[in-house]
């Protein structure tokens, strides 16, 4: 089993952290993992993306140009990565600010209204956890318990009090994700 994921959005949306949590979770399940960020000026705004691979086999290239799953959080990322999803693959997007919607017929498309939900729950910083929850619902390769362990490992201890809140956000994401009807 190999799952090749691209997560893309604005710098500051928590794209890299989401990838890191997934990588940790995969490691907790004895899988091979790799996490390759687009690093550099993205930290100061602009678009950021990270390639996460987990596999039961040795991972060769950490750089890919086609993906099983794309998780996209803004219009630029949707425009860039929709065409790079393998046929039969998955596209998960947050609909906030999207004006040109995905159009491919040969992939499964899911929408999560994560920005709106985060605002409604008054926890804007858990936005990425809502998206992560949506992904876990669609592709349950890693277990929620391991994700929480991954979260504990990825966050500095001064932020550990936010873990229950993040768990709620993940569960909420699982509930609200819906498949786009073509």
């Amino acid at each position: 089993m190999t799952e090749e994921i691209i997560i893309a959005g604005f710098g500051g949306q928590g794209v890299l952290l989401m990838g890191k949590i997934l990588a940790y979770s995969g490691m907790m399940q004895d899988m091979e993992v790799s996490w390759m960020p687009s690093y550099g000026p993205e930290m100061r705004g602009g678009t950021a993306n990270v390639t996460v691979i987990f596999s039961t086999e040795r991972i060769n290239s950490p750089i890919l140009n086609e993906f099983d799953t794309a998780i996209v959080l803004n219009q630029q990322s949707l425009d860039k990565f929709e065409s790079l999803i393998k046929p039969g693959g998955i596209l998960l997007y947050d609909n906030s600010g999207i004006t040109r919607f995905p159009s491919r017929q040969d992939i499964d498309i899911y929408c999560v209204e994560a920005s709106e939900e985060a605002a409604r729950m008054s926890m804007a910083i858990s936005f990425n956890m809502i998206v992560l929850g949506a992904y876990l619902k669609i592709s349950p390769f890693v277990k929620l318990d391991n994700v929480i362990k991954g979260l504990t490992k990825s966050l500095p201890s001064r932020h550990h009090h936010t873990i229950p809140m993040n768990r709620d956000a993940i569960v909420r994401g699982m509930e609200i994700v819906k498949k786009d009807i073509k």
Partner: peptide, 10 residues
């Protein structure tokens, strides 16, 4: 190089 330096693996 920047790729091996920045990527995470086990």
């Amino acid at each position: 190089d920047g790729l091996i330096g920045q990527m995470m693996e086990k």
